[in-house]
């Protein structure tokens, strides 16, 4: 018992410093749009950060099923597209703002994820990956041919009615809140029974099942929660783009992005997807700035990612932890 008490007693003091720094960072991010209000010219910064927030939310959500449970999903763009089209259609036909239909879009993605998971999460390993690819292709087929939502031509959405100078700000906040919620949920799951069970499933599903864990239900729940954040992000991103088209969302590339972000940052860790998302977007922007927006930026990011994965198989967080050099600031597990 002394062992337990020792680790418990030591924890609060460490938490404090880390908690202050991280909440300081959040406050800073919350205040940042003031810059744009005071003087024009910061839309680019807000934009890049907004994209980072989106990838943080998407990748942290993906990590719940893909990292903790170890079930690689390539179907998450479907939830993203589902959210985008749901809120987009409501905006076009009803005039309802995606800012408040976004949570509903997330909920719809959750329900859809739950139903899809019930069917496909009976499978283990590669069969599940294939089933998610099938879902992706199927969704593409449906959206390409469903004229009511624009078919392959897509659906144009009305622009947000804000002055141009401020128009990034609501999206910035929307994505920031989604990202914070995603990281918080991911953290809570990591430290809950569900998280323990998911990690057990990732390591040895048969052992987990024999230990008395309803592995299928745990996986389905994880998948459904995971889909929520993709749905919300889709709703916000679609509105921001003012144009929905199946080809922007439903690609294997978009699906692979989430896998890569997690691999680079550290799959199955809380901080991994956050770090990975920041690097992924940051690198991409850097390359675009240096050599322009060509196919090259995708290639360069791709190569960099491959190198990181080759030399740090556990991702950045995993590699640092293995060497005992993970700063406490980033150790959220």
């Amino acid at each position: 018992m002394t062992l337990l008490n020792l680790t418990r007693a030591a924890a609060p003091a460490r938490l404090e410093a880390r908690f202050l720094i991280l909440s300081g960072l959040v406050v800073l991010l919350l205040l940042l749009p003031v810059l744009q209000v005071l003087s024009d010219g910061h839309n680019y910064v807000l934009h890049v950060l907004m994209v980072i927030f989106m990838y943080v939310a998407l990748a942290s959500g993906w990590n719940i099923i893909g990292g903790y449970a170890g079930y690689t999903s390539l179907g998450h763009p479907v939830f993203f597209a589902l959210g985008a089209y749901f809120s987009g259609v409501l905006l076009v036909y009803k005039g309802w703002s995606p800012f408040w239909t976004a949570p509903l879009a997330g909920l719809l993605a959750t329900i859809f994820g739950f139903a899809f998971g019930l069917i496909t999460l009976r499978t283990r390993g590669p069969a599940f990956v294939i089933s998610t690819i099938a879902l992706l292709l199927l969704a593409r087929l449906v959206l390409d041919n469903w004229e009511w939502v624009g078919g392959s031509n897509g659906l144009s959405l009305p622009m947000i009615g804000w002055p141009y100078r401020f128009y990034k700000i609501p999206f910035y906040y929307g994505m920031l809140l989604t990202a914070l919620a995603a990281v918080w949920v991911s953290y809570r799951i990591r430290h809950s029974k569900l998280g323990l069970f998911l990690r057990a499933i990732a390591m040895d599903e048969i052992k987990a099942e024999v230990a008395g864990i309803d592995t299928r239900m745990c996986k389905v729940i994880a998948f459904a929660i995971s889909a929520f954040f993709a749905g919300v992000c889709g709703a916000l991103w679609g509105y921001h783009q003012t144009y929905l088209r199946p080809t922007i969302f439903l690609t294997i590339g978009a699906a692979a992005d989430l896998v890569l972000i997690n691999l680079v940052g550290g799959r199955g860790t809380v901080a991994g997807p956050v770090l990975g998302a920041a690097l992924r977007v940051g690198l991409d922007e850097l390359v675009v700035n240096q050599i322009g927006s060509t196919e090259l930026n995708i290639t360069v990011t791709g190569i960099l990612m491959i190198l990181i994965v080759l030399f740090f198989p556990g991702g950045i967080i995993g590699a640092l932890r293995e060497r005992g050099r993970l700063p406490r600031l980033l150790d959220w597990d």
């Binding site: 323990l196 057990a200 390591m203 230990a211 008395g212 729940i221």
Partner: peptide, 25 residues
């Protein structure tokens, strides 16, 4: 069939009985 990346304590606790969905959170 140990869960190699989990601690010994976690390996044992994983077997504990639990009550339904509420137990998961």
């Amino acid at each position: 069939r140990e869960l190699a990346e989990l601690t010994v304590l976690e390996n044992v606790v994983v077997h504990a009985a639990r009550d339904g969905l509420a137990g998961l959170i």
